[in-house]
Design a protein around this nucleic acid. Structure first.
Lengths: 148, 148
DNA sequence: TATTGTTATACTCTATAACTATA
DNA sequence: TATAGTTATAGAGTATAACAATA
């Protein structure tokens, strides 16, 4: 079998198709690289953000930043909390909100996972120079924050 | 609600994350734009390829080009064939293979759908100049055909 | 009245394996 | 022995709606 089951959109030089396909390949490679960590890409992203802010981050903010539905965040945080990688702390300012913060164990796992994820990612993106990767980052950031 | 349910990967300036998120937004916008045509992005891609080659294209080739599993192509071609947009023709050279070709109706629908899809896509990608879009296309093509 | 987290549900997409008929 | 299409199934990701507690 040559290749199977990744992104899609119209014919081979269509930007939407290329974006979808490239994204699928990178996600797949990253998930494969992360396998030993027990994490998949989405959980990894949540853990990463939770560990980035010492006080923790509300689930709603996590959802907003990652572009996920809040109900998906619930599931992902459940997983991470069961594994002891994050904990839900009460927000000091809003009794509805829960701040998701990385545990010491979570930070250790994240550190290892980050190496794996970067390797898997560069396995797909390594054909682009540093300058190209920077340019790509810049363009994609604009696309994401653009709603016209 | 701010934003929900799209692509994912690590923290906000991570290339994998940006790729995944941008792709998700474009696919969503395109699916929404295509709604009136009764097509979704993957079926649209198959129809597009089927109509591009007058003799039709084998399902295996479709799968290879689009990066889908052959079993997914079966389903998508089933859908399109039920709607009368493509037909499965016997291959003159290989009795196992079936050539998927667009019907006249399929070509008409495709023509309309292409306009819708392009509009939905540019709604997300319109913030990039023509030059940037060309550069993006070039980089993503390389990423896709790179397996290092 | 609106928002945070949660639960439930359905649908789409992805991943595998096995089977058949041909090659 | 391998390949094209097919079927079946399971898992991951996405999309909605509704509810309780709190703002």
């Amino acid at each position: 079998m040559i290749e199977e089951g990744i992104g899609i959109m119209a014919s081979t030089d269509d930007l939407g198709f290329l974006l979808s396909r490239a994204s699928g390949l990178v996600v797949r490679a990253t998930n494969a690289a992360l396998a030993d960590s027990g994490l998949r890409v989405r959980a990894y992203s949540v853990l990463d953000l939770a560990c980035r802010t010492p006080e923790g981050m509300s689930q709603r903010d996590l959802a907003g930043v990652l572009g996920l539905d809040p109900s998906q965040v619930v599931q992902l945080v459940d997983e991470l909390a069961s594994a002891g990688l994050v904990e839900r702390l009460p927000s000091p300012t809003d009794r509805r909100a829960k701040l998701v913060a990385g545990t010491p164990r979570g930070r250790r796992i994240l550190e290892q996972a980050a190496v794996l994820a970067a390797a898997g990612q560069q396995q797909q993106l390594g054909c682009l120079s540093e300058e190209e990767q920077a340019s790509l980052r810049s363009m994609l950031s604009r696309v994401i924050h653009f709603s016209g």
